[in-house]
Amino acid sequence: MAETSTLFTTLLMQGFAGMSLFSVLLLMALGLAIIFGQMGVINMAHGEFMTIGAYTTYIMSTFAEAHGFINQYFILALIAAFAIAFAAGYLLEYLLIRRLYKRPLDTLLATWGVSLVMQQAFREIFGAREVSPALPEWLTGSYQPAPGIDLPVSGLMVLVLMLVVTFGVWLMMYRSRWGIRVRATTQNRVIADAVGINTKRVDRITFALGCGLAGIAGAAFTTIASTGPTTGSLFIVDTFLVVVFGGAASLFGTIASAFTIAQAQSGLEFLMTGSMAKVITLVSVVLILMMRPEGLFSVKVRK
């Protein structure tokens, strides 16, 4: 009897482990999905925008520790992370990306260069040693709804944050005038221009918003991992995987893809070893993409 209940609680926690990996992947991928999907820009510096968010949280935490509001600072840090990453993205679009819209493949090279510059800048400013922000006590422990079941509070927090952010993005994309403009620009840039949409402005805000979302993802990430100058490059592959697998330009596709990859990987990790789980996940993604090159869900777009 005791055996079965342990097995049951473990399976429950395993399901939760999959859910929190899903939340993390989706948070990381949302920003990229918007930029890559809506604009066709391959932003290799996406990981570094996450790092900006993470370092912002770290700075806020040292500040909060000094001034004694460590229990409340995290919400502020999320807002600051979004704002700073948004501003940095806006600037990058203005200085670099907008000159490359006609050469989409070059954006890959250019943003990769930007990512290297940003990594070295982080190293100069924050040092090579990895940092992790001091977390409020309530965020580090676990929540026990029943004996034997430990749900990590940080995981719950990321889950809630993911729901809020996804809902926000959905509202903006499908229920606001700005969203209509973005979707119109994606579907047919020339006609959108012709009917009076300022597509340049739409591009700039879209890019900045994608970067801002990366900032939020980075801030959330510091609760479970550390931050170093090269942290961003660790996540960029997984992030691209989610976006490409889901089918570019599709919000729903991104969500479905993050969910599938997260549950598959987490489940396989439980059943076999960590390295094997990664291998099998990646091989399946490649096979599915060979059958459906456009990804799981794709939107019809005039190119």
Binding site: A17, S20, L21, I224, L234, S266, E269, F270, G274
Partner: peptide, 10 residues
């Protein structure tokens, strides 16, 4: 560089 150990912990 792995950042997700939850399955392993379970």
């Amino acid at each position: 560089g792995t950042t997700n150990f939850r399955s392993l912990i379970n």
